[in-house]
Design a protein around this nucleic acid. Structure first.
Lengths: 137, 137
DNA sequence: CAGTATCCGCAAAGATACTG
DNA sequence: CAGTATCTTTGCGGATACTG
């Protein structure tokens, strides 16, 4: 159960902002997307796959710190949403390759834009944060 | 936990993607940003403030489903990061207005880009999802 | 190699009550 | 009005062990 499964009355003026309009059920698209891709590992996986299709353990080695379980879970979730395609070659040992779909590549674009913002403003964030913290002492 | 320890086997080549380069501590900027803004409520608050500066309870009414506590927590966090400015007018009853800073407005841009992607592709996601789920039965 | 199956801790979020 | 103070619940993600 989720906090944003709340369908009720008062319509906020969110509708003027693209991507933030509520649908019939009261959800806004960007929240849905963030709920899928805003977790700890999804974006990291997408980015790693953007470079080239990759096999399971190679991916695991690329993404420092991810557990086997979370890689599996994340990949399943992305596959489910049509962002990643899973291809099995029935050799022994089995060979499973993961690749981005068209949809997967397309989301990488706005994500990269956010990435650029992040890279450019991380210092500003850090500065603001320490300013706030010292002022708070 | 260093990201570069196994550069020999599977080079992540993350460094070619803007916003995803690891820093000295092994963090990538976009992860840091998502850790701050990728939570349940931050983006919703930012978007609501993008329209106009808003007072606490008005904000609470705009954002359907947010608890008083989470609004406070979210606003503090955004203020700490320099994305939101808090202005108190010492009247009775007190009047507190929240507004986006320049930094706050600037992040709304890439966020809107992601919002547009979300709005355009939500149906594709939903379709992929139900396709996957029925295939799984 | 590429996964499943469990168990569990911890932090994020919700509910509720109270205050300057 | 604009918060703070607690308490409780939820669920993500880590650790570990086992399999085709």
């Amino acid at each position: 159960m989720n906090a944003r499964t709340n369908a009720s009355a008062a319509a906020p003026m969110l509708d003027s902002h693209p991507g933030f309009e509520r649908d019939e059920e009261g959800n806004c698209p960007i929240r849905e997307v963030l709920d899928r891709v805003g977790d700890t590992w999804s974006l990291l996986v997408i980015i790693n796959l953007q470079a080239a299709p990759t096999r399971f353990n190679a991916l695991k080695r690329s993404i420092e710190g991810i557990s086997q379980r979370m890689l599996t879970v994340t990949l399943r979730s992305l596959e489910r949403d049509g962002l990643v395609r899973r291809t099995v070659r029935p050799t022994t040992p089995p060979e499973v390759e993961y690749a981005l779909t068209e949809l997967g590549h397309s989301i990488a674009v706005p994500v990269a834009a956010l990435g650029i913002w992040a890279a450019r403003n991380r210092d500003a964030l850090k500065a603001a944060r320490s300013r706030f913290d010292t002022g708070q002492l």
